[in-house]
Nucleic acid binder design. Structure first.
Length: 747
DNA sequence: CTCAGTGACACT
DNA sequence: GTGTCACTGAGA
């Protein structure tokens, strides 16, 4: 018997899933000594390189095959539980993502999880260095008493750089000792602070704690207006999970929101939870990943990707602000984190709580039909009253031409700031003006890449495409007719609104909050702090201001254009507008004094605006749900978006057309309809949904078109999509299809 | 004829 | 995802 045969004799065959864009597992020989079980991580040869993979199954009766490669080694990583592996398989199938890519979502953080490099501590040995400079003396003095310090701490204490310490180590005056790795997060105390709950909160909290203790899958919608105390309620559910020795995951839509949350959490549980988002260092994420797997970590608060952490005993998931669009992931695997969280909870036999002041339609329907428990907090905690809403009919009492603030709104702002209170003007449009045209020849500035109007950004002296990001300098003369000083800005953006506000209130301290201003989350946090301290009288903001930030001094909200977004042809336009305006107007009010919101609109009788003004959310939900049901829109019909991309607009469009053609040639139930949401004007086989408004975005250097597939409830839209992708023409390269399923009915 | 750039393809 | 290979067009 040869040595090679000897080696393979008795070897087992394992099926390994590698984190690559492949849907199948690969089989490898595994030395029995490794004792591999499903969920174990292994090092494997893959093509020309070494990769890692996760054992998905161990073949009981391996069929004889030649040419199998052999697992190189076992990786010291926590085992991925059966529950997590099932979830990965499910998600891959549901989102039409290769399973390897789904696996990668769950293991990417572990790629950096080198076993913790020993942290080095420094302490004095007692021996003196050859040359004792004043700086060195300071270091030795600081290190006196046998205490050991982190290098950085010691350097800081001695006010020197770490180089000095290195030199002292070389000369033997300082020694290094290995320290145990720092714990990822401190232990949490479920009884650190006794909760103070109002009766309605108490009822909801009890329902949740019961569900957590039951250790079974149970979804809830926790619905309550801004300030009704939803957080305190779900803190009790977290406390219940902790008392049972379980883990909890809190998902947040925005990084900017986490800071505030962490503070409140620490006040309730004594310590902050582990924080998980793209801003956290890779090294730290790797440790959180391990901490979740070992059970050492009990609560993680984070963004979408936290959903894939390998929790050991997950008892509870919270999805905060469940209606937020930020839960939708679009590049790579595309999934809706809120819905996938529900599925994860099902696999983990955990409770899950979706919270919102303005739930999404699908969640409301699920709650109303009894699939989710429905917990409601009607009043604001501490009896803070709801703001008073007041429409301004722009047809009757609008501002003069070229102005955007109606006299009555201006008056209200003036009174508010005269009382030393804050006013917020809300306009969901970045930049100075959404359209620039030439008064002489009528030329309109359009994006050369995707045909959308270019938005003027006056601060930057630029014209920017909000669709694809294309930017050009704003010229002084018309590029069409050469006329000078003939370019006119049409319509308002926040920058222009700031200009008008400054003219109306020259002495007011005005701040514009817009996501495109430089400085990022850091600056935003600082500015929000300053607002809370009263450093500004008038805040002008885009939808950024709707996202759950606290404005304690705000008493007046002016919605400058409530109609914006209602006519966009997006099937979710009504829902989005209602949510946005509700969140924004809900910011008004201080203490027990009701706030006031003035709403400028050209169509006060529009169902969405009317429902908003009536303050009756029930009315809105009832009418929107009825409408969706009639139109077969989600959640009553299934909508999937195929995102087709190409290296330039023309290629992308060609691919989109080819795919649409393939869709119509595919044998299928006539109940499927494939539509282009704008942008494919003469393709007669394509049903148009909404106006053509160039739905292309430039993402990572590629142009994207969006095609919609609509299928009624019960239809196997995934099977259709799978066939469609298979039938998609692959010639000339670059048909990349991403499926963005609006997932319904997956339970 | 070489070389960088682009895609298609396979990976057990 | 990533390494390899074939093919292309530009330049020596």
């Amino acid at each position: 018997m040869s040595a090679a045969q000897d080696e393979t004799k008795g070897a087992r065959v394992v099926d390994v899933l590698a984190p690559v864009a492949v849907d199948v597992t690969y089989s490898y020989l595994a030395p029995p000594a490794l004792g591999l079980e499903p969920g174990d991580s292994v090092k494997i040869p893959l093509g020309a390189r070494e990769a890692y993979g996760v054992v998905w199954s161990v073949e009981k009766t391996p069929s004889p095959r030649s040419n199998l490669k052999t697992v190189t080694a076992r990786l010291e990583r926590p085992t991925l539980s059966q529950k997590l592996r099932d979830f990965i398989d499910w998600l891959a199938r549901y989102t039409l993502t290769p399973r390897g890519m789904a696996l990668r979502l769950a293991t990417r953080a572990a790629e950096d999880a080198a076993p913790d490099a020993a942290r080095l501590l420094y302490r004095a040995t007692g021996s003196k260095p050859e040359r004792l400079t004043p700086t060195r003396a300071r270091v030795l003095e600081a290190a006196e008493g046998g205490m050991s310090f982190a290098k950085k701490a010691l350097a800081e204490a001695a006010a020197c750089s770490s180089g000095v310490i290195d030199a002292l180590v070389d000369e033997g005056a300082i020694e290094t000792i290995a320290a145990p790795p720092e714990p990822v997060a401190a232990a949490l105390d479920p009884d650190f602070t006794a909760p103070v709950l109002e009766p309605a909160q108490q009822v909801a909290a009890e329902a949740l704690t019961q569900a957590v203790h039951a250790r079974a899958f149970k979804p809830f919608l926790l619905e309550g207006v801004t300030g009704s105390g939803k957080t305190e309620v779900y803190f009790e559910a977290i406390a219940a999970a902790l008392k049972d020795g379980g883990q909890a995951l809190v998902m947040m839509p925005e990084i900017a929101l986490t800071a505030q949350f962490l503070e409140r959490f620490a006040a309730r549980f004594g310590e902050k939870p582990a924080e998980w988002h793209s801003g956290v260092s890779e090294r730290k994420r790797a440790r959180i990943w391990r901490g979740a797997a070992t059970g050492e970590l009990s609560v993680v608060a984070g963004a979408r990707s936290a959903l894939f952490l390998p929790f050991r005993h997950l008892r509870l998931i919270i999805v905060d602000e469940e209606h937020e669009g930020a839960y939708k992931q679009d590049d790579g695997a595309s999934y809706h984190a809120r819905d996938m969280a529900v599925v994860r909870a099902r696999f983990e036999d955990a409770a899950i709580v979706l919270t919102s002041a303005t739930p999404s339609i699908e969640t409301r329907v699920n709650a109303e039909r009894g699939r989710y428990g429905h917990l409601r907090l009607h009043a604001r905690a501490g009896s803070r009253p709801m703001p008073i809403l007041d429409p301004i009919d722009m047809r009757v009492e609008g501002p003069q031409r070229g102005r955007w603030i109606a006299p009555r709104l201006a008056l209200a702002v003036g009174e508010t700031i005269a009382r030393g209170e804050q006013a917020l003007l809300f306009l969901n449009r970045r930049g100075y003006a959404p359209l620039t045209l030439c008064r002489d020849c009528g030329h309109r500035f359009r994006c050369t890449q995707c045909d959308a109007w270019l938005v003027e950004h006056r601060f930057r002296r630029a014209l920017v495409c909000h669709h694809c990001g294309h930017t050009e300098r704003r010229p002084d003369t018309c590029p069409e007719c050469g006329a000078e000083d003939a370019l006119a800005a049409c319509g308002p953006g926040v920058e222009r609104l700031a200009e008008e506000t400054a003219t109306l209130f020259p002495d007011a301290r005005i701040l514009v909050l817009s996501s495109d201003f430089p400085g990022g989350a850091e600056r935003l946090r600082r500015e929000l702090d300053e607002i809370a301290k009263g450093a500004f009288d008038i805040v002008i903001g885009t939808q950024l201001v709707a996202k759950g930030h606290n404005f304690p001094l705000l008493t007046l909200v002016g919605v400058v254009d409530a109609d914006l977004g209602l006519g966009s042809g997006d099937p979710r336009a009504a829902e989005r507008t209602f949510q946005l305006l509700n969140q924004v107007t809900g910011r008004a009010g201080r203490g027990d004094k009701p706030g006031r919101a003035l709403i400028q609109t050209f169509q006060p009788e529009h169902p969405v605006i009317a429902a908003l003004l009536s303050g009756d959310a029930e009315k809105f939900y009832a009418q929107e749900i009825a409408l969706r049901e009639r139109a077969g829109l989600p959640p009553f019909g299934r909508l999937a978006a195929l995102i087709v991309s190409g290296k330039d607009a023309a290629t992308a469009e060609a691919h989109a057309r080819a795919l649409a053609r393939a869709a119509h040639e595919l044998p299928r139930s006539p109940r499927y309809r494939v539509a282009a949401l704008g942008g494919l004007p003469d393709a007669d086989e394509i049903m148009m949904l909404g106006p053509a408004e160039a739905p292309i975005g430039l993402i990572r250097g590629r142009f994207r078109y969006r095609l919609l597939v609509k299928a009624p409830r019960g239809a196997d839209v995934q099977a259709f999509l799978r066939d469609l992708i298979a039938a998609a023409p692959k010639e000339r390269g670059g048909v990349r299809v991403q499926i963005d399923v609006d997932p319904q009915n997956f339970m």
